[in-house]
Simulated assay, not measured.
Amino acid sequence: MEAKTPAESFTIMNELVLPNDTNTFGNLMGGRLMYWMDIAAGIAAGRHCNTPSMTVSVDNLSFKNPIKLGNVVHIEAKVCRAFNTSMEIHLKVWGEDLLHQYKYESNEAFFTFVALDPNGKPRQIPSLRPESEEEKKLYEGALRRRQIRLILADKMKPEDANELKALFAEKIS
């Protein structure tokens, strides 16, 4: 399987925040945003592996600024690391106030997807070849984020998380 670049999975999705998408404060509901982010991440995953895939986990979904009724939601997603059968997707979200003509950062998250074969079992995926400095930074951090996910899911012992141990040893020295 030939390696792919993050640019090959790059996905942009836009949505308009309508009254049915908001809470009583006139802000986009977090669950609705997560739904849209999951769709964008799913498209990016599909572009990377050319096969059906499903969400395994969502990490570090941080809410920086609310997106208001009538604003446009702008979501960017791309694969930042591919493992054997799973891939980590980095998402950035902005709100856009069309009336006042400005964009503002709203959210960021990491989603993990696993590729599936026709029987619904995990399947091998192409590796990822990061190109830009930002892509290389996300790629390197993905292994540590993966080890944290595995430890929290009780699928890895903390003492086996070599990348995390190396990071903390580096910080201490």
Results as ranks from 00 to 15, higher is better:
M1F: 12
E2H: 13
A3D: 14
K4Y: 11
T5G: 10
T11V: 15
I12Y: 11
N14P: 01
N14V: 10
N14C: 10
P19H: 06
N20S: 13
D21S: 12
D21P: 12
D21L: 10
N23Y: 09
T24C: 03
N27R: 07
L28S: 04
G31I: 08
G31A: 11
G31E: 09
R32H: 11
L33S: 05
L33G: 06
L33Q: 05
M34A: 14
Y35F: 13
D38W: 04
D38F: 03
A40Y: 06
A44Y: 04
A45N: 08
H48V: 07
H48D: 03
T51R: 08
T51P: 01
P52N: 08
M54N: 03
M54T: 13
V58N: 03
V58C: 07
D59E: 13
D59Y: 00
N60Q: 10
L61F: 14
F63G: 01
F63R: 01
K64H: 11
K64W: 02
N65G: 00
P66E: 00
I67W: 03
K68G: 02
L69Y: 10
V72Q: 05
V72S: 01
V73R: 01
V73H: 01
H74T: 08
H74P: 00
E76L: 10
A77V: 02
K78H: 14
R81P: 01
R81H: 07
R81Q: 09
A82S: 15
F83A: 04
N84Y: 02
S86Q: 02
M87Y: 02
E88A: 11
E88T: 03
L91I: 15
L91H: 02
W94S: 06
W94C: 07
G95N: 04
E96H: 08
E96Y: 08
E96G: 03
L98T: 11
H100Q: 12
Q101Y: 06
Y102W: 07
K103I: 03
Y104I: 04
N107V: 06
A109Q: 04
A109C: 12
F111G: 02
A115K: 03
P118Y: 00
P118C: 06
K121E: 09
K121L: 10
P126K: 01
R129E: 12
S132R: 08
E134M: 10
E135W: 05
K136R: 09
K137P: 01
L138H: 03
Y139H: 14
Y139N: 05
Y139M: 02
A142C: 06
L143W: 08
L143H: 05
R145K: 08
R146H: 12
R146E: 09
Q147L: 08
R149C: 12
L150V: 05
I151N: 10
I151G: 09
L152H: 13
D154N: 14
K155T: 10
K155L: 14
K157I: 04
P158E: 15
E159N: 13
E159P: 00
D160L: 09
A161V: 12
A161P: 08
N162P: 00
K165Y: 09
A166E: 15
L167Y: 15
K171R: 11
K171G: 00
K171A: 15
K171N: 04
I172Y: 04
S173H: 11
